[in-house]
């Protein structure tokens, strides 16, 4: 099937693919930052003791995890204009991806924090450290070490999910690949070019995760 791959056409569309690649890179990076902010906030709300502050975090995380990203994306795309909010498609896409990934990141960070033994917190308490000091000096430095790998995993998922934005006419990597299919009736060439782009991003993140792991693993805990 790949034997007769028309590389000449793929090269011809290289500028479009490159533009799409850059767009995917940009909107993934922006969504990742947005998701981190939302994730940290939702996690902070979810682990603090006041019930009425926990509730919104729980509703947010459940609502996102229970529904498909595509539905969330269309919900914003068609819903926001009805509220009189008209935003560029790219921005709607970034908002949808941030909201979606943020919920998963909140769960990743929360499980990292919960993995720190209770005795660590008690040791901090017994020397008079306040809640925020215990979090900042004892819990988070240990929890973040555990969460970096799953967070990078979530970033990889986010990059692939960003292909859905092609459905609300954001021109990114998947959309750029579709151009080859539509203009030249060569869907396989388009898909291979697209896949190569995602593969590059995947390997960059994977090796970043590996390098981080090698440098920062907790002494004595592998």
């Amino acid at each position: 099937m790949l034997g007769g791959l028309n590389t000449r056409v793929m090269l011809e569309y290289l500028p479009e693919i490159w533009q799409g690649f850059l767009a995917t890179l940009f909107l993934s990076a922006a969504s990742f930052v947005g998701a981190m902010v939302l994730g940290v906030l939702a996690c902070a709300l979810a682990i603090q003791p006041l019930r009425w502050l926990r509730a919104p975090a729980v509703v947010y995380v459940d609502a996102i995890r229970a529904t498909p990203l595509l539905a969330q994306l269309y919900f914003l795309y068609f819903g926001l204009p009805r509220l009189g909010v008209v935003l560029p498609e790219m921005l709607i896409g970034i908002i949808a991806l941030s909201l979606n990934s943020g919920a998963y990141m909140a769960e990743i960070i929360r499980s990292g924090i919960l993995s720190i033994p209770r005795g660590q917190v008690e040791a901090g308490m017994s020397t008079g450290l306040s809640y925020l000091q215990r979090m900042r000096l004892i819990v988070l430095p240990q929890a973040l070490r555990v969460t970096v790998s799953p967070l990078i995993g979530q970033a990889i998922v986010l990059i692939k999910d960003s292909s859905l934005l092609s459905l609300i006419s954001v021109v990114e990597l998947t959309r750029a690949g579709q151009r080859i299919a539509i203009d030249r009736f060569m869907p396989v060439e388009g898909l291979v070019a697209t896949a190569l782009g995602y593969l590059v991003l995947y390997y960059v993140l994977k090796s970043a995760a590996g390098a981080w792991q090698a440098r920062n693993s907790l002494p004595g805990r592998g």
Partner: peptide, 20 residues
């Protein structure tokens, strides 16, 4: 309580040293 804890040392069975 926070102030009191600064005056009372506590040693745990499982040490609970900060591994990092």
């Amino acid at each position: 309580l926070l102030r009191l804890r600064t005056e009372v040392g506590f040693v745990f069975q499982s040490f609970n040293l900060y591994p990092h």
